[in-house]
Design a protein around this nucleic acid. Structure first.
Length: 515
RNA sequence: GGGGGUAUAGCUUAAUGGUAAAGCAGCGGACUUUUAAUCCGUGGAUUAGGGUUCGAUCCCCUGUACCCCUACCA
């Protein structure tokens, strides 16, 4: 039945026995003059969900002993993927699924005619897309069902679907072939619907506050706005190496310089680093900047945004995540980094200045409280290690961590009361970082000094050190108003609101090694 | 990078140093209101390579992929 090209198709796609059978059915449908992939199909009059709710109206006037409405009973045309199929001789029940849900169809030989009925029985497989026209009735067991008078296969499926009851659970296949995961697992579809809804709500939230959504370059000649190893690429037309952005911070601030007072971007950022349950090398960050605002403004904004997300997505400010109870009720706890380190690690970083001597003493102090640190670690790195090991895991309900030292925050403004610390906060939920915000440093001379300091690390071989960006400094030198800015880890926030504990489960197509 | 785990039919699972089992899906048959329909019959599989062994899916080594922990990643 299959010609030469079909044989190659079977080999190249590694079609198994069942798929070859389906391919034969496909060819038979064509041989009988029907198109299994028609360009035009009868217009769908209702989705499954619409048909089900229509039944409430139709049945309001009562139904007869066959389950048919006594009153008006219009003809509807539905379409969807066949997910269940039960033939019982001269009658068949099938269930189709469309984007709105599922509905049962009833096929009766006497109604369809023997030829079409037998053809359907013979050529249709679970997984095929079907269009069906008929009227609604209620079966004996009380299920709303379409009594089909005309139908057609509108797309033939060659691969058998995963188990109708267990779905697809193989992790690797779920990531590699997300389409199979989605079509087989309603829970997976729900996760991505929720993520999408979350993004919509965030956009609406910001738009409602006069923010402007912008797009800035993914390919950047100098990577900046964070501390991370970049992906590198080559820009042929410019004959120059470029980097995939690790952040869009410095571009959004240029827009503030340019006079846009409130900007945001949902940015795909790229960091050429390890992947684990909370890190993906390609991830999404929402960054936003607001002129004449400070980190206090950002704190209130993030809190309000998350409260509205929790109410919209969970209907409550309290919900469970990974077995932990999270409480979003404002005001959120605010914890000073120095106080928290004294409390949880017994280390007061004010007693360890950022000098070689102070660094060494901090190293030993960290060792003493049992934290795994390396002798060569920089002061800021040591502090971060201690923080990550002792303080961060205690932040389950949303918590603002404030009071970061300048050395950890090269783009943040100094505190007026303590120039060695910054106007910065990070928000933690369920023990990991969700957001990072500060009063943006707008003093070009101080920013220059910070780049120079970072440049020493870069010269020492630290790929992650901030790079001197003269154009950015030039922008600041034209004058940037006092500005509050924030970066929100969108994937992580999606994990919180969808109950997922692995970042790959909220990314539609996570990268895996090629097989 | 280090450590641990997993890999069996299209899917979900079982078992064994001696012919690899089941449910769903498939194929053939019965059944004109089923509900994961049911009933009868039936084909199909041990991640790749090497070793030990009379014999390996199982034991050993190597590779590959995925997962977890750890490290890296503020």
């Amino acid at each position: 039945m299959s010609d030469h090209l079909d044989q190659r198709f079977i080999e190249d796609l590694s079609l198994e026995e069942q798929s070859v059978v389906r391919l034969d059915k496909l060819r038979r449908i064509q041989a009988e003059g029907n198109d299994p992939y028609p360009a035009r199909v009868p217009p769908r009059t209702h989705t499954a969900a619409e048909a089900l709710s229509l039944w409430l109206e139709l049945s309001a006037g009562g139904v007869d002993e066959h389950g048919t409405p006594l009153g008006d009973n219009p003809s509807l045309t539905l379409a969807g993927r066949v997910v269940l199929w039960r033939t019982m001789g001269k009658a068949t029940f099938g269930t189709i699924e469309d984007g709105s849900g599922r509905i049962q169809l009833y096929f009766k030989r006497d109604l369809l005619g023997e030829a079409q009925y037998e053809q359907l029985k013979r050529d249709l497989d679970i997984g095929d897309f079907l269009t069906a026209t008929g009227d609604l009735f209620l079966t004996r067991s009380g299920e709303i069902t379409l009594r089909v008078t005309a139908c057609a296969i509108i797309s033939k499926s060659l691969h058998p679907l995963p188990d109708k009851w267990h779905g697809l659970s193989d992790t690797e296949k779920r990531y590699r072939q997300r389409y199979v995961d989605l079509l087989a697992n309603e829970e997976s579809r729900a996760v991505f619907r929720t993520r999408s809804r979350m993004v919509t709500l965030m956009r609406r939230f910001l738009d409602g506050r006069g923010y402007l959504e912008v797009e800035t370059p993914v390919l950047q000649p100098i990577y900046g706005g964070g501390a991370a190893k970049p992906f590198t690429t080559f820009y042929q037309a410019l004959d120059q190496s470029f980097f995939l952005r690790i952040a869009d911070e410095l571009y959004l601030k240029r827009l503030i310089v340019g006079g846009f007072e409130r900007v945001y971007e949902f940015a795909h950022d790229f960091r050429n680093e390890g992947a684990d349950a909370t890190h993906s090398p390609e991830f999404t960050m929402l960054e936003l900047y607001e002129a004449y605002a400070s980190y206090e403004t950002m704190m209130a904004l993030f809190e309000q945004m998350c409260v509205s997300l929790a109410l919209e997505l969970h209907g409550s400010l309290q919900f469970h995540y990974d077995g932990k109870q999270l409480d979003f009720t404002p005001p959120w706890r605010r914890v000073d980094m120095r106080d928290a380190l004294i409390e949880h690690a017994g280390i007061d970083f004010d007693e360890y200045p950022d000098t070689e001597e102070g660094r060494q003493r901090l190293y030993h102090a960290a060792r003493k409280v049992g934290i795994h640190v390396e002798p060569g670690m920089r002061w800021a790195k040591l502090l971060d290690e201690v923080l990550g090991a002792t303080v961060e895991p205690t932040f389950i309900s949303p918590t603002f961590l404030v009071g970061h030292p300048v050395a950890l925050s090269p783009l943040a403004k100094r505190r007026p009361d303590d120039p060695q610390r910054t106007e910065r906060f990070e928000t933690y939920m369920a023990g990991f970082e969700m957001c990072n915000a500060f009063s943006e440093l707008n003093d070009p001379t101080d920013q220059y000094a910070r780049f120079v300091a970072a440049g020493r690390d870069a010269a020492a071989g630290d790929e992650e050190a901030h790079r001197m960006d003269v154009d950015f400094l030039t922008a600041l030198a034209y004058g940037m108003p006092p500005t509050g800015g924030m970066g929100i880890g969108l994937d992580r926030l999606a994990m919180i609101f969808t109950g997922q504990t692995n970042i790959r489960d909220v990314i539609l197509f996570p990268q895996l090694r090629s097989k």
